[in-house]
Nucleic acid binder design. Structure first.
Lengths: 192, 192
DNA sequence: AGAATCATGTAAGGGGTTACATGATTCG
DNA sequence: CGAATCATGTAACCCCTTACATGATTCT
């Protein structure tokens, strides 16, 4: 049994600082990651079960006096390993950037983990490879419209590269050097 | 009953030059629009049925001597209207660009329809509005990570704008002026 | 003779959504 | 008292995918 969606990694990441029950994960995600990442409640509980089946998390039921009992999830060793592995792997497809790469950066930042600079380097080389592939395909294309399509891809990829080299570069530098911002404090908007 | 996915508009567009049966639409799409747009056979036949229920197309069964009988679909007046309306409407979300906007351009080009320049203008103003909204949100954001997220959005949007003003602009100009390229001729790769 | 083409579908499943059910507690 | 919070789920639906069924014909 394997992890099939990025949302599952996000859930694993939420459990990195310590065990949580479903409702807590929801609160964490909606306060810290929204609107970059959304998970519906039903999907969350479903994925938690799937992750337990896959051996990534373990759970125990905790009964409370005044509240409905809750199922608390914690990472297994495998779960921890798989998450860290995911965190260090660059995103392959350009369309996954907005969501997946930003989320990886978030967890590097939020968990105060080192390796964001390595991720950035790897991501840049991955994108450069992709750029070369697209360039080759564009050259081989004689159709006017298809040339536009590949031109769009190339343009998007180049935009991505400058963003990585400018904004993400400074974000990573600052995030690593300044220990006080390692843990994101972000108040819910309703409270402000 | 309404049209819910862009694929349905693509199917309507395929029928604009004249009636076709499902298999013909498949061939047309895979030769002219792939890999910018993919439709699986099962989904295609399903959507054709749905479009007929919605009153966008009408069909008639044609029996052939040496081949299995085929169901030929043609646009209704409503279907034609709805397609042209869609073609002239700019795409709202940045994530739909690669697919939806490029496809609209394709049909303007392929069908030799005027209005690509108007679509481009509308699309540029739509994106500029979006840019302003994102800019406002970014200013209101104090969290470091969220600023990066909105920064990414802004960067992407700006890249989109330059692409529209450069590449798409010349594509539209050329496509309109040069009548000989109004209908795309694109040989299948296996035949070349 | 076997593969590709023509032509239309069904079945099963994957990943996601919204709406709803439940039932206590605490806040305004 | 009514609304929001706490806490976990089920049901139904949506869009889409791959794999498979069928059966004749034409190409190699």
């Amino acid at each position: 049994m394997k992890i099939s969606t990025a949302t599952e990694f996000v859930i694993l990441g939420s459990l990195m600082p310590g065990s949580k029950h479903g409702y807590e994960i929801m609160q964490f995600l909606s306060s810290a990651l929204e609107p970059a990442w959304r998970v519906s409640t039903s999907q969350l509980y479903l994925l938690l079960k799937r992750l337990e089946l896959a051996g990534m998390v373990h759970s125990s039921l905790e009964s409370q006096k005044t509240r409905p009992s809750k199922r608390v999830y914690g990472l297994t060793n495998q779960g921890k390993k798989v998450f860290v592995q995911w965190l260090q792997t660059p995103v392959e497809h350009a369309r996954d950037f907005r969501t997946e790469f930003l989320t990886k950066l978030f967890f590097c930042h939020h968990l105060g983990l080192p390796g964001a600079d390595k991720l950035l380097d790897r991501q840049i080389t991955a994108i450069e490879q992709l750029k070369r592939r697209v360039h080759e395909r564009k050259k081989a294309e004689d159709d006017v419209f298809m040339a536009l399509v590949y031109g769009f891809k190339k343009h998007t990829i180049e935009s991505l590269l400058t963003w990585l080299r400018q904004d993400v570069h400074t974000f990573v530098k600052e995030g690593i050097c300044d220990g006080s911002t390692a843990v994101t404090k972000r108040a819910k908007k309703k409270h402000s």
